[in-house]
């Protein structure tokens, strides 16, 4: 993370920093002595810390691959719809958590980002909850709704197309 240090002058970006190669020093804490400020405790640029992160990313990748295989394996049983939906969404949510928490670093992010995401999750939840709510209300309000709908769907196509 390179947003973690206090502003320093433009000389730091001078062209002496050649692209790549062994001569280029990492964005080390020595180069940014204010690195331990409260800007972002999640990311350090010392080689040891970055290498730890790399190992963490590879472990998360392994977990995601395994969970993908499990998702496909579970689906092969062709479970009843609600069981299949629940299991698939539980596994997908866990995979999503891994990506968001570790690859997107949400496990240790700034408060402002959490504030943005809390609002987003609330409105997203409303959008997902709405259709189910609407459907069940319709059933309660018009008990014959589903029966009539099914009958219409089962009617011969020709009766719909006779006018064409």
């Amino acid at each position: 993370m390179t947003d973690t240090h206090a502003p320093h002058d433009a000389a730091e970006f001078a062209p002496h920093q050649h692209a790549g190669g062994p001569g280029v020093e990492p964005l080390s804490e020595e180069r940014h002595p204010t690195h331990h400020s409260d800007h972002d405790p999640a990311h350090h640029n010392s080689p040891e810390e970055v290498k730890k992160e790399v190992r963490k990313y590879l472990i998360v990748f392994g977990c995601l691959a395994l969970l993908t295989a499990i998702t496909v394996w579970i689906a092969s049983f062709h479970l009843p719809t609600w069981q299949a939906v629940t299991l698939a969404l539980v596994v997908a949510t866990f995979k999503g958590f891994l990506v968001a928490a570790f690859f997107m670093h949400l496990i240790s992010e700034r408060k402002l980002i959490y504030a943005v995401l809390v609002m987003t999750v609330f409105f997203f939840g409303m959008m997902i909850w709405g259709p189910w709510h609407h459907h069940y209300d319709a059933e309660e309000e018009w008990p014959g709704y589903d029966k009539a709908h099914n009958a219409a769907a089962a009617a011969p196509a020709s009766s719909h197309e006779s006018g064409h």
Partner: peptide
């Protein structure tokens, strides 16, 4: 997703080629 976080990690290590 892994390759892009690795790219970012290596940039922080100063290894542009990787």
């Amino acid at each position: 997703s892994v390759t892009v976080v690795l790219a970012w990690a290596y940039l922080r290590l100063g290894e542009l080629k990787k």
